[in-house]
């Protein structure tokens, strides 16, 4: 109905688009200010940063590793199947490596960490919000941004590239397992072929993506946690919204980064 109105009453439609645009710009601005305040908040301390690194980075290793392993393995099968159509099966190792490093390692790793970490940050900060612990911080002259958001943001920005790096290696190993057990590659040939076509930018671009996704994950969790409305329902909603926003944010920014890096 409202779409139809745009044709019947163009002014209304333009106004609606204008309002939506303004709201979007306002939101982007608010998130940017939130991010800047988190990045610049005073009160840096190594201990909370290390705790968060452990929680965000170390504890995400199993899930990121398993995701990469199965993705690399499936990728090898698919590329082999596709490559057969034009007798190009021997490109499997190189394409698995490039695909993992540039896209699948960072994106799937980022999505898995988003599910794990954005949700737990939102739940933790959200329950602090609804039990007035955030307010208590303020009354104790402590900036909640510096105390809660800053360590999570930096830990996530540091941890994600490391996780992506580990995921890259494991993903290539997944391809190698399939390549050597079912596709008829020798171990040496598979690894040599993986290396031969790699450029350092393939690796670095993926790690940069990881850092950006890390920021998106931490900021989504903190943003929705800080804005949780009262009650357990509010915390639940904050958690869901944080995961959805982080996931969409990762996929959208991945597209933007890919088009910046590779076109």
């Amino acid at each position: 109905m409202s779409a139809l109105r745009i044709f019947l009453r163009p002014a209304d439609g333009i106004r609606a688009v204008g309002r939506a645009t303004l709201a979007l710009v306002g939101l982007v601005g608010a998130v940017a200010i939130f991010a800047a305040r988190a990045g610049a908040a005073p009160g840096y301390a190594p201990r909370p940063l290390l705790e968060q690194l452990l929680r965000i980075g170390w504890l995400s290793l199993p899930v990121v590793g398993l995701t990469a392993l199965f993705t690399g393995a499936a990728l090898a099968l698919q590329i082999d199947a596709g490559g057969q159509r034009f007798q190009a099966e021997d490109v499997v190792p190189a394409i698995v490596a490039i695909g993992m490093l540039r896209e699948l390692g960072p994106v799937l790793g980022g999505l898995m960490v988003a599910a794990r970490v954005a949700s737990s940050i939102a739940a933790e900060i959200g329950s602090m919000r609804v039990t007035e612990q955030i307010d208590a911080l303020v009354t104790l002259s402590t900036d909640p941004m510096g105390w809660l958001v800053t360590p999570r943001l930096w830990a996530s920005v540091l941890a994600l590239p490391l996780l992506v790096g580990v995921g890259d290696v494991i993903g290539i190993m997944g391809g190698w397992l399939v390549g050597t057990t079912t596709l008829g590659f020798t171990s040496q040939a598979y690894l040599a072929n993986s290396w031969a076509y790699l450029e350092s930018w393939d690796v670095v671009s993926g790690l940069i993506k990881g850092a950006v996704f890390g920021a998106i994950i931490a900021l989504s969790g903190c943003w929705f946690g800080m804005r949780a409305s009262r009650g357990a329902v509010g915390v639940g909603r904050a958690t869901t919204n944080a995961v959805v926003a982080a996931s969409v944010g990762i996929l959208a920014s991945n597209f933007i980064l890919t088009s910046m890096f590779f076109t």
Binding site: S127, M128, E132, Q133, A136
Partner: peptide
């Protein structure tokens, strides 16, 4: 605070 608001 009425709820105490202790840091868990």
């Amino acid at each position: 605070f009425q709820s105490g608001a202790l840091f868990d």
